[in-house]
Nucleic acid binder design. Structure first.
Lengths: 208, 208
DNA sequence: ACCTGAACACCGTTCAAGT
DNA sequence: ACCTGAACACCGTTCAAGT
């Protein structure tokens, strides 16, 4: 069942990475509720106690995976806006960003739910996690600076939160099947739902 | 510790209601992760197996609580729009609805997280839950009908999903502390974040 | 009809070793 | 330094009774 040949190979700092990968696999297969620390250890072929050498507890392992997720999200969002090939059409770029965001959430729903669920928001643990979130948000704010170069940075921050709220909320409703959405109509429907938000935000920003 | 005097009093269909109340209390005290079926049973003073007489499993009890939550939300939203005293200023009413929504989420965060988290979105179980969600959404769509009486019902549906996404997303980000928000600035900041969405949605609806 | 008790196969986490 | 084994106090759920 487990890969016997790799049993003895986690002696050079490879175990943390192997555990992160196992966590991703479990999340993909069993969802956020199905993840257990013991199953992650089982998959990489170590005693479950070995996990505690590298992660303080279960949440800490999930936080590490979430942090990687935020970095992937930032990369994907940047790629999505660049892929439009429209350096100046900010509305187009923002809608593309939203589509990228939803595709990210949909691609690995359980990971997204860990990233944005209630699991990790305790106290001030995981400061590097907060940092990674802010970096992902930065992509959004850079686009908004192009839209309203004369606007205040506070106004852009608020505009960013509006857009983020809308696309995060939409993704969340789609993931929990409150809003049905097939792959075929995804692009078109993201446009229908998010275009009004983009319009409203850009209008508000232009007035500042 | 537990109320000895109530031990013998669940013989007339009161147990289900008592369990729902205990669930709410546990969610409020310990959060969504802290809820267990056994603790709920403990609090009402019955063996944990007794729960299965009335609820198929743990999820089923949570679903019942979520369903009640959707009904409360619908009532609260209706009250919030009426409290504006502006029968014709739809933008004002929608912003008030958003503030009510956020206050609901904030008032009982764990319950909100159960309602909108990944816990209950399995298969086609709990059809009455879906119904309750749709009823809550109806408040939003009624307001939108006032905004664009000439618009198609499909356009209003989409506009409703846009608004719902934005306020749900904003609530979720506030609840998981991705966006800090103190009680003092709540009203003002809901306006800042949601007004652009309301504007964009109303503009789009008027064009149809 | 409604509730209980014992049992099963799991958890996350702690303590005390092993190499 | 890194991993293991046994133990603890929990879970949700099943089976077979009890009144």
């Amino acid at each position: 069942m487990t890969a016997e040949s790799t049993r003895k190979s986690y002696h050079h700092g490879e175990l943390p990475q192997a555990l992160r990968e196992a966590t991703l696999a479990i999340l993909a297969e069993l969802g956020p509720e199905g993840f257990t620390l013991r199953e992650a250890a089982r998959r990489v072929g170590v005693n479950h106690r070995a996990v505690y050498r590298h992660f303080e507890d279960k949440r800490s392992l999930l936080a590490a995976v979430a942090e990687e997720g935020y970095r992937s999200l930032a990369v994907l969002l940047r790629a999505a806006v660049e892929a439009t090939g429209s350096p100046s059409d900010v509305a187009e770029r923002l809608v593309a960003l939203c589509e990228g965001y939803l595709r990210f959430a949909r691609g690995e729903p359980a990971r997204y739910q860990v990233m944005f669920g209630p699991r990790l928001n305790s106290d001030g643990r995981f400061p590097s996690l907060e940092l990674a979130i802010q970096e992902a948000l930065l992509v959004l704010r850079e686009e908004l600076r192009k839209a309203g170069p004369a606007s205040s940075s506070l106004a852009r921050r608020d505009a960013g939160i509006t857009l983020w709220s809308a696309i995060h909320g939409f993704s969340s409703l789609v993931l929990t099947q409150k809003v049905p959405l097939s792959e075929r109509q995804l692009s078109r429907y993201v446009d229908t739902v998010m275009r009004p938000v983009v319009r409203g935000v850009l209008m508000t920003l232009a007035r500042q």
